[in-house]
């Protein structure tokens, strides 16, 4: 059974239909890379998966929970679905460790002992053990994004959604974040990433999804698709990225 199942999802903003019947199946341990032009609906789709955005038709389920029918227990869903954003969105008044510990403490009511251990473990995982007591403003963009990843991991999600998490970074900081994501992938984490890093999509992804005008235009294993796109749109899109 799929961990994340997206079936014929439609979504309009006003009179503009942004998602026009999107279906994607994500298995446990899959690393799905979503690519596509600006405005093709990638972020909207991702945000529908954890209920940040509602959708008008179709069905999304995560680990058997129907996202559209959650209402009250949207929070149960979100405990299992982590999200990392382009703009990091760290809480500026909290240190790196406090950012990581906040949700386990207030949402899961874990003891101080456990949240401290969680912070230690997840910050180590992103290579920032020495920055636990730094405030976000004292960290580089790459470090902030790694803290944001640690913060999401501390809730022990079943799947992690990443929306262009390297797009706001200086070029020299991109690789440190991608390395962390690659580690997660090799540890078996289920990942759905919207990305403009084509090489990363090809080398780390287990599945490529090309969105075009609100639809999945092509999907499949990344390497063959990159080598020989099935549609002129994908060929053109890949060509544009170089």
């Amino acid at each position: 059974m799929s961990l994340v199942s997206i079936k014929d999802v439609r979504k309009s903003f006003g009179s503009v239909e942004v998602l026009k019947g999107v279906s994607i199946e994500v298995g446990r341990g899959d690393v799905v890379a979503i690519i596509g032009k600006s405005g093709s609906g990638k972020s909207t789709l991702l945000r529908c998966i954890n209920g940040l955005e509602t959708y008008d038709a179709g069905c999304i389920s995560v680990d058997g929970i129907d996202v559209g029918k959650t209402r009250g227990n949207l929070r149960d869903l979100r405990r299992n679905v982590g999200m990392v954003f382009q703009q990091f969105n760290l809480f500026p008044h909290l240190t790196a460790a406090e950012n990581v510990m906040l949700a386990p403490k207030v949402v899961n009511r874990e003891s101080a002992h456990i949240t401290k251990a969680l912070a230690k473990e997840t910050l180590a995982k992103v290579g920032l053990s020495d920055k636990a007591d730094s405030y976000p403003s004292q960290l580089s963009g790459g470090q902030q994004q790694r803290v944001a990843i640690a913060r999401a991991l501390a809730m022990r999600p079943n799947v992690l959604l990443c929306d262009e998490i390297t797009s706001a970074l200086d070029p020299e900081l991109v690789s440190e974040v991608l390395r962390v994501v690659e580690r997660l992938a090799s540890d078996g984490m289920t990942l759905i990433l919207v990305t403009h890093e084509m090489r990363f999509a090809r080398d780390v992804g287990t599945k490529l999804v090309f969105m075009h005008q609100g639809k999945v235009h092509e999907e499949g294993p990344p390497k063959p698709l990159f080598a020989s796109p099935g549609t002129p749109e994908l060929a053109q899109f890949i060509g544009m990225q170089h």
Binding site: R75, N89, L90, F91, V106, V107, R151
Partner: peptide, 10 residues
């Protein structure tokens, strides 16, 4: 920041 917090199930 609100969306990040929401995503953390707060």
């Amino acid at each position: 920041h609100l969306e990040a917090a929401e995503s953390l199930a707060m």
